[in-house]
């Protein structure tokens, strides 16, 4: 039995400690938003956040997530269905084409912007260097990350004012 927190909720389920976390999420919890593109940690499609840090869930074993907190793409939008500013920015800036890399891209972006809403270009490149995309050419993804950072900053300013 493994207990962990997933998208804000306490979870416990039967899983072998050496099971891959991507399988625990997809098969055990039905969270199929996490994608498998290579199974070797080379493409980033399976990126999730483990205690806020991006990790490849295809390389992560279930035993390592006990009592820790996981965020998947399903946990990004609000409960009421409103998209997160990162998701909105990805759509507005055309950073999504086929969408298979998108969950991982969004999560890597979230980890980056949670630390710093105005990252330098090099920081964006570094943060997303493990997430491959074959469709977009990446330019619009960079734009989306910047736009999302701006929107998040604006949001926190507004909250600060209130």
């Amino acid at each position: 039995m493994i207990r962990f927190k997933c998208n804000g909720k306490a979870v416990q389920l039967e899983a072998e400690p050496e099971a891959r976390v991507i399988d625990v999420l997809r098969d055990g919890l039905g969270l199929t938003g996490t994608k498998e593109g290579c199974g070797r940690g080379e493409c980033g499609a399976c990126t999730i956040l483990l205690d806020g840090k991006p990790v490849n869930s295809c390389l992560l074993l279930a035993g390592k997530i006990a009592d820790r907190e996981i965020t998947t793409i399903e946990g990004i939008a609000s409960e009421d269905g409103a998209l997160h500013p990162i998701q909105e920015a990805f759509l507005d800036k055309g950073a999504v084409q086929c969408g298979f890399c998108t969950p991982g891209m969004v999560l890597s972006t979230k980890a980056l912007l949670d630390e710093n809403e105005t990252p330098e270009l090099e920081e964006i490149e570094e943060a997303l260097s493990g997430n491959l995309c074959r469709c977009t050419g990446y330019g619009k993804i960079v734009e989306a990350v910047r736009e999302a950072g701006q929107r998040l900053m604006h949001e926190s300013d507004q909250q600060g004012d209130a």
Partner: peptide, 24 residues
């Protein structure tokens, strides 16, 4: 006009069903 993808919502939320996401 710069119209965003009409099928984008499912893609950014992880709800889009790719072939590997089907289960029977």
């Amino acid at each position: 006009k710069r119209i965003r993808k009409v099928d984008g919502f499912e893609l950014v939320t992880g709800r889009a069903k790719f072939a590997g996401d089907y289960k029977f």
